[in-house]
Design a protein around this nucleic acid. Structure first.
Length: 463
RNA sequence: GCACCCAUCGUCUAGCCCGGCCUAGGACACUGCCUUUUCACGGCGGCGACUGGGGUUCGAAUCCCCAUGGGUGUACCA
């Protein structure tokens, strides 16, 4: 049997980090089992639906380098089939028309709450022989079992039971004829041949309801795996106030997709003590056994660490391109020399930064033009003595014929010796003069990269 | 409220199912030292947890019960 998983996001305008995680796990499980992952957009809520939102999710998946099998299915487009099933269920005696008004329902909800019952609808139309009231468009409700225990055997959560009293005859077709999510999911999953439903734990309670539909239709119930939720750093539901919740934001911040995948995977899944896990290993190792049961908090520090790891491994050309993307986005019109500097300094830059955005920040010392803005510490280094040293360095560098790393180092050390001071006393003022800061990558190398003209220009500027 | 789920360092987790190998392992963060022209990187150390209480057992992080805490669900949303 071919294993078929599915990725069914609802288009809410962006791709939530939790959605991405679910997608990743479905994808890994499918890949691990040489199965397929289908992609379906849960777009039945027309009020909230927009093409841009669909686009955002597709782009998010593509960025994460997660692919899917077959066409993207629109749940909305399958509406006729859902409706057909709803009527079929009525015909089979598994569902019925209900003519309750919203007011009546509200009253039932209140009394149910007062009595501590979870199922609020009192099933008054379930087997009613009453003549339907005129002028009211009915909904279709499914007949949930009246007694007994419902069991869900979940690959992550184990066997979970619930009493039938907890289930009510929920609506499968609205009064306006539009199918509900509960019906649509089941019909689509069945029609798409989905064998494994891997989704967030927030859907767990729905599983009991969905099983009612499967059973009423006599369809095979899929294998379920409910993943623990991702919470914010404070343990509360991950929301906007925690910072970035959308995949797009991480992309813009300069995280690498492979880092994102690795981080998301390790959140609530483990394989012994392994932390850095390549996609190939992830596919090879991924299994339900490794999934934890408790919710995990999102930790930016760890993400940063993993990202910096993958940045060190990343190809320089790619990193340069990503850097230029960020420069473009912030409206910095880069020159060919910017690109040249990035290339030359990339080996060093990528070992320092945690994100591409951070890398771009660090790279400023190479491509900045015009007046040098000094930070406080840098300015303090350029006192009388500091300026004197920098002047001497300027002369020495000007006279240097082989303007490379090694010779620059020799020249600087020579100045230090002739002045009788440690190298730090020489380099720090120079660093201040050249970069306007007190921390930067290796100056010898930076000087070589900048070239004699630019170095002398900056020295001139600063003193 | 009711239902369901969860519970090991600050965080992610290993160990738990199949009790002894656990004076509880790894990673991030924090921190000390080393390296060093600065900041990073890197290397070597340190700090730091079985939520509480009852059982069961010769023995419990591991099994059972209760409490507490956290999460989710409870729509003609998905």
């Amino acid at each position: 049997m071919t294993i078929v998983t599915r990725f069914p996001p609802s288009p809410t305008g962006f791709m939530h980090i939790g959605t991405a995680r679910t997608g990743l796990f479905n994808w890994l499980y499918a890949k691990h089992n040489k199965g397929k992952m289908r992609f379906r957009i849960e777009d039945t809520d027309r009020a909230r639906h927009s093409e841009a939102a669909v686009e955002a999710i597709i782009n998010g998946l593509k960025w994460l380098e997660i692919d899917w099998d077959g066409d993207i299915i629109s749940q909305y487009a399958c509406g006729a089939r859902h409706t057909e099933i709803a009527h079929e269920l009525v015909k089979r005696g598994e569902a019925y028309y209900c003519y309750c008004t919203p007011d009546e329902l509200e009253k039932m909800r209140e009394s149910a709450k007062a009595e501590g019952r979870i199922a609020s609808y009192d099933r008054r139309w379930r087997d009613s022989k009453n003549t339907p009231p005129a002028g009211i468009k009915p909904v279709i409700r499914i007949k949930a079992p009246l007694s007994g225990e419902q069991l869900v055997n979940d690959k992550v959560q184990g066997e979970v039971r619930v009493n039938a009293e907890q289930l009510d005859d929920f609506i499968i077709l609205r009064s306006d004829g539009v199918p509900t999510y509960m019906l649509a999911v089941v019909v689509d999953d069945h029609d798409m041949g989905v064998t494994h439903v891997i989704r967030g734990d927030d859907h767990f309670n729905n599983t009991f309801r969905q099983n009612v539909i499967y059973q009423a239709m006599g369809w095979d119930i899929p294998v379920y795996a409910h993943l623990p939720l991702i919470l914010g750093p404070d343990g509360a539901k991950l929301s906007k106030r925690h910072g970035a919740t959308g995949v797009e934001e991480y992309r813009n911040l300069g995280y690498l997709p492979e880092a994102m995948r690795n981080y998301l995977l390790r959140l609530c899944w483990s394989h012994g003590d392994d932390e850095i896990i390549s996609t190939e290993q992830a596919i090879e190792w991924f299994d339900f056994d490794g999934i934890g049961k408790s919710p995990a908090r999102f930790d930016f520090d760890k993400l940063n660490f993993i990202n910096s790891h993958y940045m060190k491994l990343a190809d320089n050309n790619r990193l340069v391109d990503l850097s230029l993307d960020i420069l473009n986005r912030v409206g910095h019109s880069y020159s060919p020399s910017t690109k040249k500097y990035l290339f030359a300094a990339m080996d060093e830059l990528k070992t320092r930064a945690k994100t591409i955005a951070g890398l771009v920040d660090d790279s400023r010392i190479y491509w900045m033009t015009g007046a040098i803005t000094m930070d406080e510490k840098a300015a303090a280094l350029l006192d009388v003595a500091g300026i004197a040293i920098v002047k001497k360095l300027g002369v020495a560098l000007k006279n240097l014929s082989n303007f490379d790393n090694a010779n620059i180092e020799l020249a600087c050390k020579a100045i230090g010796e002739s002045e009788g001071v440690k190298l730090g006393k020489v380099m720090m003022p120079l660093r201040a003069a050249l970069t306007g800061t007190t921390s930067s990558p290796s100056l010898f190398h930076a000087i070589e990269i900048l070239g004699k003209d630019e170095v002398l220009r900056r020295i001139e500027q600063s003193i």
